[in-house]
Write a protein that binds this DNA or RNA. Structure first.
Lengths: 193, 193
DNA sequence: AAAAAACGTTGTACTAGGTCAATGGAAATC
DNA sequence: GATTTCCATTGACCTAGTACAACGTTTTTT
């Protein structure tokens, strides 16, 4: 159950066996079945989740009831509403499972204990945050300067695995376009004319 | 020259006088006059800059020559192309001064020295990165779910200071709309009909 | 102080992408 | 294995935002 977490952390910092054994105790394992949720809008986000297995999505729902997908999280990714997690404010985001999933939850208090007792983890989280920040900067650039067609081409190139695992209308939602329009883009590519 | 930096860091971690004195030596002060640049597209981003005074923008230029503003950085903000800074790849981003500015530059090697010698700074950067990440998540939400009019209303509410200091077409660029359309939005609000 | 550049506004025409609804096929669910 | 729900596609029509250009003002530069 902790295999991927172990490898994932080892990629950035090296922990002793004792340190990892201690670190494990700070996570709460949780299985989440497809269509069940980890976080509901209005609730406070109590933990950040590491995905050992499965696939989740984080999204908001606008006034018209339309979903806007902020993130897909397959194996080895972290998912949460960091704003709510850190401030304790109610979240405007929902998170739920697209496939049966196995998660490792890290609650706020345990996060603090972890970084105090294993200072290397401070470094781990700094680097992880850096990568997340860079990824979202890239997405902002894309939103500002690319057409729907370009965004889709980049998406299938960057996340071929996700393309296989989620329905097309969710990719449209992630890209900020309607499912109908994404279908037309695909039609254009398949039979140009 | 280091006043704002000192206060800025003190807000998140407390350093001894000795620590801060050492930390100061790791920054390179730089004055940048209006319209001059800190980073050109194609170059590698060698340092992250803390703004002591003035105002800068980071932006990309697309194939048609249109600018897309990724960030404004007034006093107390950090600005860089983090991706290029960390990977050493050439940047696709330009950074230049909108007002005469005073910067404190932190080069990659000095950053490493800093976090090794003052572990508290690891924490400082983790938290700063968290805040940056949260801010860009908010911007992504906005791009996915808000109309141009809503984005503009939020912008003037969130960054009243920036609104005073930069020309309107740059706000349009930041919001991902054309200057002409922003002008129409403003006209609508002023003389509805 | 003059000249030049940058800026905001507005008109007309246009287009990328949205809306709504119908259809058939594929998956989940029971 | 039947039924229901979910999903992708397509057509007809619509609209938020774009493109381009002209004009007057303000700001910069010299």
């Amino acid at each position: 159950m902790y295999d991927r977490l172990h490898q994932h952390i080892s990629r950035l910092v090296s922990l002793t066996d004792d340190e990892f054994a201690f670190l494990k105790t700070l996570f709460i394992p949780k299985k989440l079945r497809r269509k069940h949720d980890l976080l509901q809008a209005g609730d406070v986000c109590k933990s950040i989740a590491f995905v050992e297995k499965g696939l989740l999505k984080a999204y908001t729902v606008d006034a018209k009831g339309v979903e806007h997908i902020l993130q897909f999280a397959p194996e080895d990714w972290w998912i949460s509403d960091l704003y709510s997690y850190l401030t304790g404010e109610p979240s405007d985001t929902q998170i739920d499972a697209l496939e049966d999933s196995e998660l490792l939850l890290l609650e706020r208090g345990n996060m603090d204990i972890m970084v105090e007792n294993i200072p290397k983890m401070e470094r781990f989280f700094r680097i992880t945050l850096q990568n997340n920040y860079i990824a979202s900067q890239r997405r902002i650039k894309s939103a500002l300067s690319q057409s729907a067609e370009e965004k889709y081409a980049d998406f299938i190139h960057r996340y071929p695995d996700i393309v296989q695992r989620v329905p097309q209308h969710m990719i449209a939602s992630y890209l900020g376009i309607t499912p109908a329009f994404l279908s037309r883009i695909r039609g254009r590519k398949a039979h140009p004319d």
